[in-house]
Design a protein around this nucleic acid. Sequence first.
DNA 1: CATTTATTTGCGTTTTCATGCATGAAAGTA
DNA 2: TACTTTCATGCATGAAAACGCAAATAAATG
Lengths: 249, 249
Amino acid sequence: MLKEERQAFIMKQINLHNKVLSTDISAMLSISEDTVRRDLKEMAEEGKVLKVHGGAIGRSFHYPFDEGNSVYAQAAKKQIAEKTLKLLKNDMVILTGGGTTMIELAKAIPVHLRATFFTISPLVALQLVEHPNLTVITIGGQLSRSSHIHIGASVINQLAEIKVDLCLLGANGFSIQDGMTESDWEVVQVKRAMLRASKKMAILSIAEKLNSSQRMKVCDLNQINYLITELEPDNHFLDAYQHLDLELF
Amino acid sequence: MLKEERQAFIMKQINLHNKVLSTDISAMLSISEDTVRRDLKEMAEEGKVLKVHGGAIGRSFHYPFDEGNSVYAQAAKKQIAEKTLKLLKNDMVILTGGGTTMIELAKAIPVHLRATFFTISPLVALQLVEHPNLTVITIGGQLSRSSHIHIGASVINQLAEIKVDLCLLGANGFSIQDGMTESDWEVVQVKRAMLRASKKMAILSIAEKLNSSQRMKVCDLNQINYLITELEPDNHFLDAYQHLDLELF
DNA sequence: CATTTATTTGCGTTTTCATGCATGAAAGTA
DNA sequence: TACTTTCATGCATGAAAACGCAAATAAATG
C-alpha cells in the first residue's frame, strides 16, 4: 500500500471524526503502528494534522478556548441581546443579573432608551452607565469571586424592597424536567429573590445551555415569561418549550 | 479518550456554566478525579481556567479593564499605592472610594493580604476580588455617570451601619485653608458618610492636587490621619502639612 | 538487465507519557 | 476544635513514542 493512499485514508478519518488513534489506523490498515506514527509525524510537519499522544486531531478541531480572550459564543449572545431589546420600553424599571450575555445586552441598548436598571453585576452596571438616558442602580453586597455578581443576605434584603417591571437573567441550567437550575447555592438564593422582585421574568440563554441541569433548582419554568435564545422561535430544537406558558423569542 | 478531547470537553463545560467540579467531570467522563485535577492544573498553568478548590472557573471576563491604558500620572499613583500598603494589615476592615489611584492600589495589594474591603466603586471591587484572600463588599446605590462610584441615600444609609478600621480616599481638592473639598454635592455627602464610618482616614493624592480647592467642603484636615503622596514626607513641598495632626507618607 | 542507491517498513529496545491508587498534607466545614 | 473533602506527591503499571537497525521495496543508473 502506498504511503499517499495511507495518508489520504488517515486524512479522511480525521475529517470524519476529528481525530484518529494510531492503534485504530494500524488495525484498520493492517500496518504497524510505527508506520502510522511516521505518517502522522509527516503530516503534522506539513501542518495537516495536530499530533497528540495516542493519535492526532484535525487542524480544524477548534478548542473552545482558541478564541483567546474573547467571549464564548459571542455572536449568538449578540443576537440574543438584539432580540431582548424588543422587551425594553421607555420608563421601565428593569432588574438584571450578570454574565457575558447580559454584558452584550448592556452594550446593545439603544442610546435613546430611557429606563431605570437595577443590577447585581458591577460589570453590567459599568456598561449600562455609559448610556446617557439610563439610571443605573447597583444592588451591592459581597462580590462573588467566581461569578462576579453580588451575593449574600444584604442583596436579598435590598431585593425584597423593590418591585420591577422586568427581570433579565442568564441561565446556568435550563430544562423541562428540572426547570431553571444553578450550581451555586448563594446564587440560587439571589435569583429567587430577583424573581420575587419582578413582575415578569425573561431568561436569556444560548441554545447550547438548554436541556442541561445543575445541582440546585431556582424555579419552575412556569415562573418564566420569556425565553430568548439565538434560535428562531419555531426552530425544532425549541419544540419542547413551545407548549409551555412562556413566550419564545 | 484523548487528553485533548477531555480538556476541550472541560473547557466547553466551563464556557457554558462558568464553573466545573472535578467530581462532576470525573463522573461524566468516567475517569478518575486525579486525571481531572491534572487536566485542570495543566489548563490553569496555560491560563485557560482559574483553578479553585473543588474544580475550576472560567477566565473569560476577568480584566475587561484598561491594561496599559493611559492613566494620568500613573507612575506617581503606583508609588502612592506602594506606600499605602504599609497601612494595610491582616484582618483589617477597610473602606475605599474610587478613582484611578484606588485602582492602582487595588492592583498593588499583595496576594497574601487577608482583609475585608468595602467599596463604593464597582471598578475597585472588581479589581480587589481578583485577590484570593480578600472579602469584597460593594456598597451599592445609584451609579454616578461622571465618577463611576455609587452615590445617593442608600449609600449613606449603608455606610451608617458599618464601622471600619481604615478609610482610603482619593482627594479632589486638598488645602490647608479649606481642608478637603469636592466639586460634586452628592460625592461630598458620600465622603462624609465614609468618614463617619471609619476609625482612621487616609487620603491618597498626587502632590499636584494639594493646595487646590473645590467648591464644597468635605471635612477639615484634622479629621485626616494619613496623607499619602508620591513625594518623600520631608519634601519641602509638603512643609505646610508637617506640623498638622496627620501622618505623612 | 544487473547493480547500486535511496526510501520505506517492521521489529526490538529504551524513554517518555498518561493514568490510577495510596498516603499524608491542606483547606474547607460543622 | 474535630471532621470531611480536596490536593499534592510518589510510585506502579501499561501504553505510546523515539531510536537504531535490518530487511524489504522502490528508484536510479550504467
